[in-house]
Amino acid sequence: MNILITGGAGFLGRGLATALLQRGQLGGRNIERIMLADLVAPQDTALVDDERISVSTGDLQAHVPVLMAAGPWDAVFHLASAVSGECETNFDLGLHANLDSTRALLDACRLQTAEGHAPPLFFFSSSVAVYGSDAAIPLPAVVRDDTLPTPQSSYGIHKFVCEQLVADYTRKGFIDGRAARLMTVSVRPGRPNGAASGFLSGLFREPMAGQRSNCPVSLDTEVAIASPATTIAGILVVAEATREAFGGRTAINLPALTVSVRDMLHAFEALVGAEPLTLVTCEPDDGIARIVAAWPSRFESQRAPALGLTPDPDFGGVLQQYVQHHGEAVTHPGARARLGLV
Rank of each mutant, 00 (worst) to 15 (best):
residue 1 M to N: 00
residue 2 N to S: 09
residue 5 I to E: 01
residue 13 G to E: 04
residue 17 A to H: 09
residue 21 L to G: 09
residue 21 L to W: 00
residue 28 G to Y: 03
residue 28 G to I: 06
residue 32 E to W: 02
residue 40 V to W: 03
residue 43 Q to S: 13
residue 44 D to Y: 05
residue 45 T to L: 14
residue 47 L to W: 04
residue 52 R to G: 10
residue 53 I to K: 06
residue 53 I to S: 13
residue 61 Q to E: 15
residue 62 A to Q: 14
residue 63 H to R: 06
residue 64 V to P: 05
residue 66 V to R: 14
residue 70 A to L: 10
residue 74 D to A: 11
residue 74 D to L: 05
residue 76 V to G: 05
residue 79 L to V: 15
residue 82 A to V: 13
residue 82 A to H: 11
residue 86 E to I: 02
residue 90 N to H: 09
residue 90 N to P: 00
residue 92 D to L: 06
residue 96 H to P: 00
residue 96 H to V: 14
residue 96 H to Y: 05
residue 97 A to E: 11
residue 97 A to Y: 03
residue 103 R to Q: 04
residue 106 L to Y: 12
residue 106 L to P: 13
residue 109 C to R: 04
residue 109 C to N: 10
residue 110 R to F: 00
residue 111 L to R: 14
residue 115 E to I: 06
residue 121 L to S: 06
residue 123 F to V: 15
residue 125 S to E: 12
residue 127 S to A: 12
residue 131 Y to G: 08
residue 139 L to P: 08
residue 141 A to S: 13
residue 144 R to M: 13
residue 148 L to F: 01
residue 148 L to R: 14
residue 148 L to A: 12
residue 151 P to W: 12
residue 152 Q to L: 14
residue 154 S to G: 08
residue 155 Y to R: 11
residue 157 I to C: 09
residue 158 H to T: 14
residue 159 K to A: 12
residue 165 L to C: 04
residue 168 D to K: 08
residue 170 T to S: 11
residue 172 K to M: 07
residue 173 G to H: 10
residue 173 G to E: 02
residue 174 F to G: 00
residue 175 I to G: 06
residue 182 L to F: 10
residue 185 V to S: 01
residue 188 R to L: 02
residue 188 R to V: 05
residue 194 G to L: 15
residue 194 G to I: 03
residue 198 G to P: 01
residue 198 G to K: 10
residue 200 L to K: 01
residue 204 F to N: 11
residue 208 M to V: 03
residue 208 M to N: 07
residue 212 R to Q: 15
residue 212 R to A: 11
residue 212 R to Y: 01
residue 213 S to Q: 09
residue 216 P to Y: 07
residue 217 V to S: 01
residue 218 S to C: 05
residue 218 S to I: 00
residue 222 E to A: 12
residue 223 V to P: 00
residue 228 P to V: 01
residue 228 P to C: 03
residue 234 G to S: 09
residue 235 I to N: 04
residue 241 A to F: 00
residue 241 A to W: 03
residue 247 G to H: 11
residue 248 G to R: 04
residue 250 T to S: 09
residue 254 L to Y: 07
residue 260 S to Y: 12
residue 261 V to D: 12
residue 264 M to C: 11
residue 268 F to M: 11
residue 271 L to R: 07
residue 273 G to L: 04
residue 278 T to E: 10
residue 281 T to S: 15
residue 282 C to W: 07
residue 283 E to I: 15
residue 289 A to C: 00
residue 289 A to G: 14
residue 291 I to W: 04
residue 293 A to N: 13
residue 294 A to H: 13
residue 298 R to D: 02
residue 298 R to I: 02
residue 299 F to T: 02
residue 300 E to K: 07
residue 301 S to A: 08
residue 308 G to Q: 08
residue 310 T to E: 13
residue 313 P to Y: 05
residue 316 G to W: 08
residue 317 G to D: 01
residue 319 L to E: 06
residue 322 Y to H: 14
residue 324 Q to L: 14
residue 326 H to F: 15
residue 327 G to S: 08
residue 332 H to F: 03
residue 332 H to P: 12
residue 338 R to K: 15
residue 338 R to Q: 14
residue 339 L to F: 01
